[in-house]
Design a protein around this nucleic acid. Sequence first.
DNA 1: TAATTCGCTAGACCGA
DNA 2: TCGGTCTAGCGAA
Length: 780
Amino acid sequence: MVIGIKAYILDLKSEGEDKIKMTLRDKSFQEAHDTLQPYFYLEPEKKGHKTDIEKIPGVIKVEDYEDSLGQKLLKITVDHPGRIPEIRTKMHAYGVNREHDIPYHFRYLIDKALHANTYYDFELDNGMVKGAKKTSLGSPKLNMCAFDIETHSEKGVFPDPKRDPVLMIAYKDDKEEKVFYWQEGKGTEKEMILAFIDKVKTEEIDVLVGYNSAGFDLPYLKERAKKLGVDFDLSRDGSDLHITKGAFPRATMYGRMHIDAYNGVEFLSYIGALRLPKNDLESVYKAFLGKDKIDIHYDDITTFWKAGGEKLKKLIQYNKEDARAAYEIAERLLPLYNELSRLIGLPISDVSRMSPSQMVEWYLTRKAFERNEVIPRKPSSEEIKKRQQRPIEGGFVKLPKRGIHEHIAVCDFRSLYPSIIISHNLDGHALNCNDCTEKEKHHSPAGYSFCSKKQGLIPQILEELINARIGAKKEMKKHKQGTHDYDVLQAKQWGLKILANSVYGYLNFAMARWHSREAAEATTSLARFYIKDTIEKAEKAGFEVLYADTDSAFLLLKNKSEVKRAKEFIEKINKSLPGLMELEFEGYYPRGLFVTKKEGGAAKKRYALIKEDGTVEIKGFEFVRRDWSNIAKITQEKVINAVLKEGKPEKGIKIVKDVIKDLRAGKVSLEDLVIYTQITRPLSSYEAIGPHVRAAQRLIEKGEKIRPGSVVEYIVTEGPGNIGEKSWPKQLLGNRKPDMEYYIKNQIIPSVIKILAELGVTEDELSKDERQKSIAQWFS
DNA sequence: TAATTCGCTAGACCGA
DNA sequence: TCGGTCTAGCGAA
């Protein structure tokens, strides 16, 4: 029987020989099947292998294949996707494998031109897909829930699912917040787990979110379920929850997308959309809910659970807040992942675990298929090492003019690297073309030239991404803020921006299939050319250029009315720029501050600007760095504000002196003295034991887990030895007293001195009236 | 197994 | 104890 349904592919997997099973979702959901004969390519070492290869068990067909790049290959069709690993190993005798490492369900979506999470009119014949036509329906709305578990724990012992039960499971969706729990004599752990599974199923949850749930909650629940004889079946087809352990843990269940919000937070931090002191649940909760999460030490969880009454209530609340924090982060992430999934065309569960580079690579893979280009191999480890040897030259940074300046116009190139790549067709395959004359080619200062006739894959996808983003932004204007359509478009343009911004980095990334050193060098060399050219032209036009970094230039104006002249200058530049390249007027700033380095000379990448409405933008200074104490940061912010708003030295001096006084009087909270620093490698591989490493060692001695990525929070205390010896983790501070003189001398003074120096404040002035004469020596 | 380069600064380390 | 050099982290773009 043939039926037609409007639905989207939520999930899919391989099933048997040449079959794909998929979950089609609309208001309900339904299982469907399709076929795709698995295949891969071989770059043959020499001709004449064909007949040998045909004899290999599992090989169905061997054909000559030439793609649109002129690559002459053998296309090897096999009977079963699961056989590819075995067959491709045998192929080493005949040549080099190509496209042998594309997961079968990705292969299916790419070859059939189907995008996950996108509505199609499917024609199904007894559950087999007979046709799929794209509809005009927009983004699907997925049912999402967050969850979190609390487990029994003995003092100082990490919970072990072989021994310690799960006490509670918090659940939150868009309708309710609920905590499943049991107590001795009231219910059982088994019933609780079953009730949770039942909840996920009855709510038809499509997206299950936890925090570190791939590494902890789901493996833990699975293990407990096994012990209790419960079928821990969260999937939509009765298949098992699949757990992959290791440095990058994964948990997958067919038919439901699992998102680990921890990956999401790392992703958002990575692309610069989120900056938290550390990427833990507490920081997420505070950033999103604006208040601190209830604090219960994990040693006390079982005690609270047993105690009942108010304590139990508090534990329930604690558990709820964990789920709530995961939910908050997921609410921001899901629309983005949904759009990225639609763009790249792969399921959310896969996309949510990808780095921006991987996203670019899979996007390119799909587009390469459309162009009939067999994709490049992954580089070997030797090739990767070779690529990493000599770094390419990056952006140009102009030495700024130090001091406090008035009337600054900032202009910057819109999407500089992408627009250069598109306008000059920078692409590994467009390099050294034979179709263009020297004159026709795009030339770069790096010495490489590129075809001007046939657009390369990289410039093509960049152009598509940028145009799609312009389209999405235009479309956004037709919708009211806060509506579903608006939010979807917002997420879409964000996803497009992430992809477009990642392409250059991808090009220069050693592990990239489409790595092109030449294209990357051409990109940065042209970027240096354009910014230097702009600086030169600005100076010729009579502007003093205060500073420039990669894609932006700061023009010093004589007065505010010169803004018009600056805009005219920008327009003139734009007339000379090729293709999509555009210089934009970013803003007018009445005042700006550039300081000198510690070693003298003006400092790059550190400045502060104030807008007409009084908002201050601070770049590079300690204020924006997490590895400085809050007291130093807020003092610096106040001083910068005072300098930019009033420009009088007295106020700045007073701010600093007051803080010093407060520190000596013990009026500063401990929280404001904490320094956050990340541990980036196993402790044993540090050559220099800095304060954060010393503090981490102390945590390890107490049995805490410190891994690369852990953020240590430490305070410098009074006592003998170097600063490291004096550094104690916040948790282990005990009776130790913070070393206030350290905070004055090594935190407050260095963070303000270069700023106040621009107002003519000298070391002596700052130390005047101070009871301790020794202050002067700090500035020596 | 998953973007790079440019730049600043603190604090350890090391030899005189 | 001093100063130079190196290691390490993090931010700007």
